[in-house]
Amino acid sequence: MSRIKNCFDKLKTRNRKALIPYVTAGDSDPTVTVPLMHAMVNAGADIIELGVPFSDPMADGPVIQRAAERALEHHVSLRDVLTMVTEFRQQDSHTPVVLMGYLNPVEVMGYTVFAEAAAQAGVDGVLTVDLPPEEAETLVATLRSQQLDPIFLLAPTSDDERIKLICEAASGYVYYVAIKGVTGAGNLDVQAVADKLEQIRKHTDLPVGVGFGIKDAESAAAVAAVADAVVVGSALVQKVEQAAGQHDRINAEIAGLLMQMRAGI
Protein backbone atom coordinates (compact mmCIF):
# COMPACT_ATOMS: atom_id res chain seq x y z
CA MET A 1 0.00 0.00 0.00
CA SER A 2 1.23 3.49 -0.78
CA ARG A 3 2.53 5.60 2.08
CA ILE A 4 0.02 8.27 1.13
CA LYS A 5 -2.99 5.96 1.32
CA ASN A 6 -1.67 4.49 4.52
CA CYS A 7 -1.30 7.96 5.98
CA PHE A 8 -4.86 9.03 5.13
CA ASP A 9 -6.30 5.72 6.37
CA LYS A 10 -4.55 6.12 9.70
CA LEU A 11 -5.67 9.72 10.07
CA LYS A 12 -9.21 8.68 9.32
CA THR A 13 -9.31 6.12 12.12
CA ARG A 14 -8.13 8.85 14.46
CA ASN A 15 -10.60 11.31 12.93
CA ARG A 16 -7.79 13.68 12.07
CA LYS A 17 -7.19 15.89 9.04
CA ALA A 18 -3.86 15.94 7.25
CA LEU A 19 -1.57 18.94 7.48
CA ILE A 20 0.55 19.25 4.33
CA PRO A 21 3.29 21.88 4.31
CA TYR A 22 4.95 22.94 1.06
CA VAL A 23 8.51 24.25 0.89
CA THR A 24 10.74 24.75 -2.12
CA ALA A 25 13.67 22.34 -2.07
CA GLY A 26 16.99 24.12 -1.77
CA ASP A 27 15.52 27.34 -0.40
CA SER A 28 17.22 29.35 1.02
CA ASP A 29 20.17 27.04 0.35
CA PRO A 30 20.50 23.29 -0.25
CA THR A 31 21.51 22.43 3.31
CA VAL A 32 18.30 23.89 4.75
CA THR A 33 15.90 21.35 3.30
CA VAL A 34 16.43 17.98 4.96
CA PRO A 35 16.60 19.26 8.56
CA LEU A 36 13.58 21.44 7.80
CA MET A 37 11.62 18.41 6.58
CA HIS A 38 12.32 16.63 9.88
CA ALA A 39 11.38 19.76 11.83
CA MET A 40 8.09 19.96 9.98
CA VAL A 41 7.28 16.34 10.76
CA ASN A 42 8.05 16.97 14.43
CA ALA A 43 5.73 19.98 14.36
CA GLY A 44 2.81 17.90 13.09
CA ALA A 45 3.14 17.65 9.31
CA ASP A 46 1.52 14.49 7.94
CA ILE A 47 2.73 14.72 4.34
CA ILE A 48 5.44 16.95 2.86
CA GLU A 49 5.14 18.66 -0.51
CA LEU A 50 8.59 19.45 -1.77
CA GLY A 51 8.80 22.03 -4.52
CA VAL A 52 11.18 21.33 -7.38
CA PRO A 53 12.64 24.67 -8.45
CA PHE A 54 11.91 25.76 -12.03
CA SER A 55 13.07 28.81 -13.92
CA ASP A 56 9.57 29.69 -15.14
CA PRO A 57 7.06 28.98 -12.38
CA MET A 58 3.99 30.19 -14.27
CA ALA A 59 1.44 29.17 -11.65
CA ASP A 60 3.25 30.68 -8.68
CA GLY A 61 2.98 34.06 -7.04
CA PRO A 62 5.97 36.22 -6.11
CA VAL A 63 6.76 34.44 -2.82
CA ILE A 64 7.31 31.00 -4.36
CA GLN A 65 8.89 32.52 -7.48
CA ARG A 66 11.55 34.07 -5.30
CA ALA A 67 12.04 30.78 -3.47
CA ALA A 68 12.73 29.07 -6.80
CA GLU A 69 15.16 31.83 -7.72
CA ARG A 70 17.03 31.40 -4.44
CA ALA A 71 17.27 27.65 -4.97
CA LEU A 72 18.38 28.08 -8.57
CA GLU A 73 21.14 30.42 -7.48
CA HIS A 74 22.52 27.24 -5.90
CA HIS A 75 21.73 25.27 -9.10
CA VAL A 76 19.39 22.93 -7.27
CA SER A 77 18.27 20.37 -9.87
CA LEU A 78 15.63 17.65 -9.91
CA ARG A 79 18.41 15.13 -9.17
CA ASP A 80 19.50 17.19 -6.17
CA VAL A 81 15.92 17.16 -4.88
CA LEU A 82 15.84 13.37 -5.19
CA THR A 83 19.09 13.21 -3.24
CA MET A 84 17.47 15.28 -0.48
CA VAL A 85 14.58 12.82 -0.30
CA THR A 86 17.02 9.90 -0.08
CA GLU A 87 18.72 11.63 2.82
CA PHE A 88 15.40 12.38 4.53
CA ARG A 89 14.41 8.71 4.24
CA GLN A 90 17.47 7.65 6.22
CA GLN A 91 15.70 8.86 9.34
CA ASP A 92 12.04 8.94 8.35
CA SER A 93 10.52 5.95 6.62
CA HIS A 94 6.85 6.76 7.12
CA THR A 95 6.09 10.41 6.22
CA PRO A 96 4.93 10.61 2.59
CA VAL A 97 6.81 12.99 0.32
CA VAL A 98 5.21 14.50 -2.77
CA LEU A 99 7.26 16.34 -5.37
CA MET A 100 5.53 19.39 -6.76
CA GLY A 101 6.86 21.21 -9.78
CA TYR A 102 6.67 21.77 -13.50
CA LEU A 103 6.95 19.26 -16.29
CA ASN A 104 10.08 20.35 -18.11
CA PRO A 105 12.74 19.10 -15.68
CA VAL A 106 10.95 15.72 -15.71
CA GLU A 107 10.81 15.67 -19.53
CA VAL A 108 14.50 16.42 -19.77
CA MET A 109 15.42 13.68 -17.32
CA GLY A 110 13.05 11.29 -19.13
CA TYR A 111 9.87 9.85 -17.63
CA THR A 112 11.19 6.35 -16.97
CA VAL A 113 14.52 7.46 -15.57
CA PHE A 114 12.74 9.95 -13.34
CA ALA A 115 10.11 7.53 -12.06
CA GLU A 116 12.69 4.89 -11.19
CA ALA A 117 14.95 7.38 -9.46
CA ALA A 118 12.05 8.94 -7.55
CA ALA A 119 10.80 5.58 -6.34
CA GLN A 120 14.31 4.62 -5.34
CA ALA A 121 14.73 7.85 -3.39
CA GLY A 122 11.52 7.24 -1.47
CA VAL A 123 9.21 9.72 -3.17
CA ASP A 124 5.52 8.85 -2.90
CA GLY A 125 3.64 11.19 -5.19
CA VAL A 126 4.29 13.58 -8.06
CA LEU A 127 2.35 16.72 -8.88
CA THR A 128 3.28 18.47 -12.12
CA VAL A 129 1.39 21.73 -12.06
CA ASP A 130 1.39 22.35 -15.81
CA LEU A 131 0.37 18.83 -16.81
CA PRO A 132 -3.39 18.30 -17.11
CA PRO A 133 -4.58 14.67 -17.41
CA GLU A 134 -5.14 15.10 -21.16
CA GLU A 135 -1.39 15.31 -21.66
CA ALA A 136 -0.43 13.05 -18.76
CA GLU A 137 -1.26 9.57 -20.03
CA THR A 138 2.32 8.46 -20.49
CA LEU A 139 3.65 10.00 -17.31
CA VAL A 140 0.78 8.61 -15.22
CA ALA A 141 1.42 5.09 -16.54
CA THR A 142 5.14 5.45 -15.89
CA LEU A 143 4.60 6.73 -12.33
CA ARG A 144 2.09 3.97 -11.61
CA SER A 145 4.54 1.33 -12.77
CA GLN A 146 6.81 2.52 -9.95
CA GLN A 147 3.99 2.69 -7.36
CA LEU A 148 4.14 6.48 -7.35
CA ASP A 149 0.88 8.38 -6.94
CA PRO A 150 0.09 10.96 -9.63
CA ILE A 151 -1.47 13.94 -7.85
CA PHE A 152 -3.59 16.38 -9.86
CA LEU A 153 -5.02 19.81 -9.27
CA LEU A 154 -8.70 20.70 -9.36
CA ALA A 155 -9.77 24.31 -9.73
CA PRO A 156 -12.84 26.46 -9.17
CA THR A 157 -13.27 26.41 -12.95
CA SER A 158 -13.26 22.59 -13.22
CA ASP A 159 -16.68 21.35 -14.31
CA ASP A 160 -18.17 17.91 -13.61
CA GLU A 161 -16.65 16.43 -16.72
CA ARG A 162 -13.16 17.57 -15.79
CA ILE A 163 -13.52 16.60 -12.14
CA LYS A 164 -14.35 13.10 -13.30
CA LEU A 165 -11.42 12.96 -15.72
CA ILE A 166 -8.98 14.22 -13.12
CA CYS A 167 -10.14 11.97 -10.32
CA GLU A 168 -9.83 8.96 -12.63
CA ALA A 169 -6.22 9.84 -13.42
CA ALA A 170 -5.27 10.63 -9.82
CA SER A 171 -4.38 8.46 -6.87
CA GLY A 172 -3.25 9.25 -3.33
CA TYR A 173 -5.27 12.42 -3.06
CA VAL A 174 -6.52 15.27 -5.23
CA TYR A 175 -5.59 18.84 -4.58
CA TYR A 176 -8.26 21.51 -4.83
CA VAL A 177 -6.91 24.97 -5.65
CA ALA A 178 -9.23 27.14 -3.59
CA ILE A 179 -8.86 30.37 -5.52
CA LYS A 180 -8.66 31.49 -9.11
CA GLY A 181 -5.13 32.76 -9.06
CA VAL A 182 -1.53 31.96 -8.33
CA THR A 183 0.00 30.61 -5.13
CA GLY A 184 0.03 33.03 -2.22
CA ALA A 185 -2.80 35.16 -3.57
CA GLY A 186 -6.14 36.25 -2.28
CA ASN A 187 -8.48 35.24 0.47
CA LEU A 188 -10.44 32.09 0.31
CA ASP A 189 -14.18 31.80 0.61
CA VAL A 190 -14.77 28.78 2.84
CA GLN A 191 -18.41 28.37 1.86
CA ALA A 192 -17.47 28.28 -1.83
CA VAL A 193 -14.80 25.70 -1.02
CA ALA A 194 -17.31 23.57 0.88
CA ASP A 195 -19.73 23.67 -2.05
CA LYS A 196 -17.05 22.69 -4.53
CA LEU A 197 -15.80 19.83 -2.33
CA GLU A 198 -19.31 18.45 -2.24
CA GLN A 199 -19.34 18.47 -6.04
CA ILE A 200 -15.89 16.82 -6.15
CA ARG A 201 -16.85 14.09 -3.69
CA LYS A 202 -19.66 13.00 -5.98
CA HIS A 203 -16.94 11.81 -8.32
CA THR A 204 -14.33 10.31 -6.03
CA ASP A 205 -13.53 8.64 -2.74
CA LEU A 206 -9.98 9.97 -2.81
CA PRO A 207 -9.06 12.34 0.01
CA VAL A 208 -9.36 15.97 -1.06
CA GLY A 209 -6.69 18.44 -0.01
CA VAL A 210 -7.25 22.17 -0.23
CA GLY A 211 -4.55 24.74 -0.79
CA PHE A 212 -3.83 28.29 -2.06
CA GLY A 213 -4.87 31.05 0.32
CA ILE A 214 -4.27 29.29 3.66
CA LYS A 215 -2.17 31.63 5.75
CA ASP A 216 -2.69 31.00 9.45
CA ALA A 217 -4.23 28.75 12.08
CA GLU A 218 -7.63 30.31 11.56
CA SER A 219 -7.87 29.75 7.80
CA ALA A 220 -6.36 26.27 8.26
CA ALA A 221 -9.02 25.40 10.82
CA ALA A 222 -11.81 26.69 8.60
CA VAL A 223 -10.65 24.63 5.63
CA ALA A 224 -9.97 21.54 7.75
CA ALA A 225 -13.62 21.56 8.76
CA VAL A 226 -14.57 20.69 5.18
CA ALA A 227 -11.45 19.15 3.59
CA ASP A 228 -9.42 16.00 4.25
CA ALA A 229 -6.14 17.86 4.10
CA VAL A 230 -4.88 21.40 4.40
CA VAL A 231 -1.97 22.47 2.21
CA VAL A 232 0.04 25.49 3.27
CA GLY A 233 2.80 26.92 1.10
CA SER A 234 3.44 30.62 0.66
CA ALA A 235 2.96 31.42 4.36
CA LEU A 236 5.81 29.02 5.15
CA VAL A 237 8.01 30.04 2.25
CA GLN A 238 7.69 33.63 3.37
CA LYS A 239 9.19 32.64 6.70
CA VAL A 240 12.10 30.96 4.93
CA GLU A 241 12.67 34.18 3.02
CA GLN A 242 12.60 36.31 6.16
CA ALA A 243 15.08 34.05 7.92
CA ALA A 244 17.15 33.21 4.84
CA GLY A 245 20.55 31.83 5.76
CA GLN A 246 19.69 31.29 9.45
CA HIS A 247 18.92 27.59 9.62
CA ASP A 248 17.79 27.38 13.24
CA ARG A 249 15.47 30.33 12.83
CA ILE A 250 13.92 28.87 9.66
CA ASN A 251 13.22 25.59 11.45
CA ALA A 252 11.85 27.31 14.55
CA GLU A 253 9.58 29.74 12.73
CA ILE A 254 8.14 27.15 10.40
CA ALA A 255 7.65 24.64 13.20
CA GLY A 256 5.95 27.37 15.21
CA LEU A 257 3.41 28.17 12.48
CA LEU A 258 2.76 24.49 11.77
CA MET A 259 2.14 23.76 15.45
CA GLN A 260 -0.39 26.57 15.61
CA MET A 261 -2.10 25.16 12.53
CA ARG A 262 -1.95 21.61 13.85
CA ALA A 263 -3.60 22.76 17.06
CA GLY A 264 -6.31 24.52 15.10
CA ILE A 265 -7.37 21.68 12.84
Binding site: M58, A59, L103, V129, D130, L131, P132, E134, E135, F152, L153, L154, A155, P156, T157, S158, D159, R162, I166, V177, K180, G181
Partner: peptide, 20 residues
Amino acid sequence: NRGHFGIYGGKFVAETLMVP
Protein backbone atom coordinates in the same frame (compact mmCIF):
# COMPACT_ATOMS: atom_id res chain seq x y z
CA ASN B 1 -8.40 18.84 -31.98
CA ARG B 2 -6.19 18.75 -28.89
CA GLY B 3 -3.73 21.16 -30.37
CA HIS B 4 -0.98 18.74 -31.32
CA PHE B 5 1.38 19.39 -34.20
CA GLY B 6 2.89 15.92 -34.29
CA ILE B 7 4.44 15.56 -30.83
CA TYR B 8 4.49 19.34 -30.33
CA GLY B 9 1.92 21.83 -29.11
CA GLY B 10 -0.84 20.72 -26.76
CA LYS B 11 -2.17 22.34 -23.62
CA PHE B 12 0.30 22.33 -20.73
CA VAL B 13 -1.28 24.66 -18.22
CA ALA B 14 -2.52 24.58 -14.65
CA GLU B 15 -6.04 23.25 -14.23
CA THR B 16 -7.64 26.66 -13.67
CA LEU B 17 -6.98 27.59 -17.31
CA MET B 18 -8.28 24.42 -18.95
CA VAL B 19 -11.93 25.46 -19.06
CA PRO B 20 -11.21 29.05 -20.18
